[in-house]
Design a protein around this nucleic acid. Structure first.
Lengths: 162, 162
DNA sequence: TATTGTTATACTCTATAACTATA
DNA sequence: TATAGTTATAGAGTATAACAATA
């Protein structure tokens, strides 16, 4: 039997839930309106944009994005159809696919980013002080590290053959 | 042009995003495995359980859950089909529907809750100190209040007729 | 005329399993 | 045999608009 949560833990949990839900909702709307991007597509473009050469293997993109491989393929296809990325077999390992950002992809990302920042400023960063933001980054950063390194209890990345 | 985000703001934003995504993922899996509940269904049951008489109007349930009316109807239908809630027209206002929790609904919620707490303890509350949890509750609570009271810029709760 | 809720419908997204190809 | 990725498919969830009924 797990120990009950403290009142403060409950408050923190509810607040976290509500903040992330409202924020995500607002962000998804902005991305859709400004650039017809889903949240996942935005994340993929962002990750590609962070890469020095604008390229990443599918597998590397999959890490950090929680989705299944097929889900990633699906979103990558949509991006490719719009010409925002290209997909090519990797020269190093012919099994791998390298996803590369196109100029068009960069352009769409650039179009969308100002509004994205705006939503964050207005919704998430209006109330907390600079110190609060520091605290948030520290506390949630630690939690993220922990969660990332804690594999699901019944870890089944990919089902064993038989 | 919106001002750029500070490095710390970006860190806080990414951490928040990652924490809520991983947490939500784990929670959804636990709810599905333990009680065949979707996250929304769990939220609805929780809200009903919080009500003194286990009853709430659809509209009241809709507040706080970000979804559309039709989405709420859909989930309420699923819960009703499983016998976890009942829906009756309100005596006060015949337009309204009152959703009431059944004993079966309480039972399922009780079945699911221990595992839910476990996930929270292991994932969200392992790293932060008591003081940290206080800070989280305070900072995110303020943000939630703010976001709740900040209507979407192009507020269109329900489209105007014509 | 405004509000509450449902229905019909279309679409987006996600996951599972089977499959191909390379290591 | 294991890994990278795609495909086929099926299911869950969501939103929009039209609709019915009550206030």
């Amino acid at each position: 039997m797990p120990s009950a949560l403290t009142t403060t833990q409950l408050e923190a949990y509810y607040a976290l839930t509500e903040v992330s839900a409202l924020l995500r909702h607002a962000i998804e709307k902005q991305l859709r309106d400004a650039g017809r991007l889903s949240y996942v597509q935005f994340q993929l473009l962002t990750r590609l944009s962070d890469a020095r050469d604008g390229r990443r293997r599918m597998t590397d993109l999959a890490d950090g994005v929680v989705y299944s491989r097929s889900g990633l393929t699906y979103q990558a296809q949509l991006l490719e159809e719009r010409g925002l990325v290209t997909r090519l077999p990797s020269p190093d390992d012919e099994r791998s696919t390298v996803v590369a950002m196109t100029d068009e992809g960069r352009a769409v990302l650039a179009t969308v980013l100002p509004g994205h920042r705006e939503v964050l400023q207005e919704l998430l960063f209006t109330t907390p002080s600079t110190g609060d933001v520091n605290e948030l980054a520290r506390i949630l950063g630690q939690a993220a590290d922990h969660m990332r390194s804690t594999p699901p209890r019944s870890a089944s990345r990919r089902r064993r053959k038989t």
